[in-house]
Write a protein that binds this DNA or RNA. Structure first.
Length: 156
DNA sequence: GCCAACGTTGGC
DNA sequence: GCCAACGTTGGC
């Protein structure tokens, strides 16, 4: 089983939205970066753990945990002319963008903020989120870092 | 295939 | 709103 971090702007889709969603599951639409897509398309497996990260908000940080809940399939928004994620270069025959569904697992009692994570940079050595200039919205996380985040959330 | 210009991400 | 970092585009 692998672990991932997936970023979302809470204005757009937050951990609370996932709680309220039908079957507590959502399609992770709108990723338009090839590297992020490739992780979803080629490497994610059902049941993989996902750190749900809130970005571009008052307190950026990890808000909870989700699980990969589907195999990859085409992102419908790429075909929707009215969507901000519409991609005129994509076709139904050869869709460019793939996504997975993500299911709610757990909301943290408190957001483990980016600031707090930075304060624990020693234990989190190598955690991609803390790398300089990291902008990727989907990337793999080592189990040790995943576990460390859970420990931090519990105040250990 | 290089690389300058431009666009986007995302923290601050 | 600023801007560093980095991805993408397009001319050559």
């Amino acid at each position: 089983m692998a672990y991932w971090l997936m970023k979302s702007e809470p204005d757009e889709s937050s951990i609370d939205d996932l709680v309220k969603a039908k079957k507590q599951t959502t399609a992770w639409f709108g990723v338009r970066n090839y590297q992020a897509r490739n992780y979803m398309r080629d490497q994610m497996r059902l049941g993989d753990g996902v750190l749900f990260y809130h970005s571009s908000c008052e307190v950026p940080g990890i808000a909870g945990i989700a699980k990969v809940a589907s195999k990859p399939y085409p992102d419908a928004s790429q075909f929707d002319r009215k969507s901000e994620y519409y991609d005129p270069k994509s076709t139904r025959e050869e869709p460019r963008w793939q996504l997975v569904d993500v299911a709610f697992d757990k909301k943290f009692d408190r957001v483990v903020s980016l600031e707090e994570l930075k304060q624990h940079a020693d234990e989190l050595e190598g955690f991609t989120l803390l790398n300089r200039g990291n902008r990727l919205s989907v990337f793999p996380v080592d189990k040790k870092h995943y576990d460390q985040v859970l420990k931090l959330e519990k105040g250990k």
